[in-house]
Design a protein around this nucleic acid. Structure first.
Lengths: 206, 206
DNA sequence: TGTACATCAGTGAACGCGCGTTCACTGATGTAC
DNA sequence: TGTACATCAGTGAACGCGCGTTCACTGATGTAC
């Protein structure tokens, strides 16, 4: 954090940080190119050296968010140790935890109205996060007798949907959170357990 | 649609309509007080007769959205006819259908960063929508042997989460939709079926 | 090692624009008698 | 039924503001020789 001279040195990251703090304060779309520059201590023209426009800045923010998100999910999965089921539970908690700890990243990724399909690097980062979840589902499915395995991709989508649904409705960090008389973590764990029982992974009496 | 004179006659609704078309074009938060007035064919000061500020306008939009949404879910449920299960499936499809047919309302309700808790009438409208889903779950639970019923509220939250998750990820009408090799309707129906099997509502071999 | 030069990453002033908001106003409508 | 008056729902001009964007510029850094 040395006194900066004429060159900032790390303006790109500083702008992303500024966007994150602005999103925290005012919601996604509550930031402007000009204010991000001001927060980074730089003239309003400086961001143009790094981003074509406002959209490129939010995409870069979301991209970084997806990478951190993917890394957290992968770490939570930890190759399915000690058991796929307990590891999977950890992944769900990591999903919720990310949304709570990094609401600004989460908003940039899921609520800023940007489309992962539109940008190759964004798409790759988003896929990496989904792949972590998908690999966990593959490991779960591998534990089932071959003739009873559901389509793994479908299972991944379902578990993604329930995890995302619980997070978006009950687990968000802002005022739009719906109140439930049970923590989102417990709600998600119970839901995933019921789903896995229904899909045949868990016996009926669990 | 007669030629309007000095008084608009239905400005409040016209402003909400303008907001909806603006959200459709530019996403939630992509509208301004001034532009909504322009679209309604009225001077920029006119909206102040009906709304304190921009926020009150988006809240009114979301409130109307929740009421239409609740009515559609209630109609889809149709008191559980002909059977609770088929009626419940219809409710899920109505949820998805609303998000697809009315993306602007959906965005105002779930993605504009407003909090249902903050406004009593908004909250009431949002609750009415959730209640439709909750009553459907109660009817499902009533079909189960009393000693095996799960907590109905939890069941409602779970089915809400999976429905909302599928909708927000795969069923949205805009570019942020995730592509899956299966329609959101089928994905949701399969997910709900698996969940209901897991919770004991459906026998293991369905 | 020193120097010349190209490139990079900033500056800061300027622009036109649309926004939110206010104000005194006025035309239309509703109502008391 | 007519009239006077209060209230309602608009007008339109004006304001200050922050934004996105551009421009010619300049200080710092990297590199060829």
């Amino acid at each position: 954090m040395s006194k900066r001279g004429y060159h900032h040195g790390n303006l790109k990251s500083a702008l992303v940080d500024a966007v994150l703090s602005l999103i925290s304060e005012k919601g996604p779309n509550g930031f402007s190119f000009a204010e991000a520059a001001r927060r980074a201590g730089v003239s309003p023209a400086a961001p143009y050296r790094h981003f074509k426009d406002r959209d490129e800045l939010i995409i870069e923010t979301a991209r970084r968010g997806y990478e951190i998100f993917a890394a957290r999910l992968e770490a939570a999965w930890d190759e399915g140790r000690p058991s796929p089921l307990s590891a999977f539970d950890r992944v769900g908690r990591a999903y919720l935890g990310f949304a709570r700890a990094e609401p600004a990243y989460f908003a940039a990724m899921f609520e800023a109205g940007i489309a992962p399909e539109d940008d190759p690097t964004l798409r790759a980062a988003a896929n990496r996060a989904f792949d972590a979840l998908h690999r966990a589902c593959e490991a779960l499915a591998a534990r089932m007798p071959e003739d009873k395995r559901p389509p793994v991709l479908m299972m991944s989508y379902h578990l993604w949907a329930i995890t995302h649904g619980v997070t978006a409705l009950f687990g968000r960090a802002d005022d739009a959170r719906r109140r439930a008389p049970i923590s989102p973590e417990e709600l998600l764990e119970a839901g995933a357990t019921i789903y896995l029982r229904g899909v045949g992974f868990l016996p009926k009496d669990t």
